[in-house]
């Protein structure tokens, strides 16, 4: 889903092709998903492998611990589920509901 966006005029835009840092957080890519990762807090051993492997900065961490998935940005690639240690299996992929 595209974020609400006021399209600036040439006068309003900063001069040159200047864009403020980190503004992509406002752009939601969650609708790309056909499957979604589901994180199980009980099973998670906090190894952080899912977090460091995620291409979409979509593993939410707080104080150095995984606390959930950012579904605004997660594209449902499933890397987190594959990288989660086999014996732990704290992330499973489920079909996205329509």
């Amino acid at each position: 889903m595209k974020a609400e966006e006021h399209k600036l005029t040439a006068k309003e835009l900063p001069v040159g092709d200047i864009l403020e840092a980190g503004t992509a957080v406002a752009f939601k890519t969650g609708a790309w998903r056909s499957i979604r990762p589901v994180w199980n807090a009980q099973k998670c051993i906090q190894c952080m492998i899912c977090w460091i492997s995620c291409p979409d900065t979509s593993i939410i961490v707080k104080d150095g611990k995984v606390t959930g998935i950012n579904y605004d940005h997660c594209k449902g690639c499933g890397i987190c589920a594959v990288e989660c240690p086999k014996k732990v299996c704290a992330i499973t992929m489920e079909a996205e509901k329509k």
Partner: peptide, 29 residues
Amino acid sequence: PERYLLDIKRPYTLGAIDLQDYYFEHRFQ
């Protein structure tokens, strides 16, 4: 300069890709 890349306290992106909705405004500038 008003903005410059080494001004690390005010980071910004320079040289972003503009598509149909912004390219023309920048070229108009």
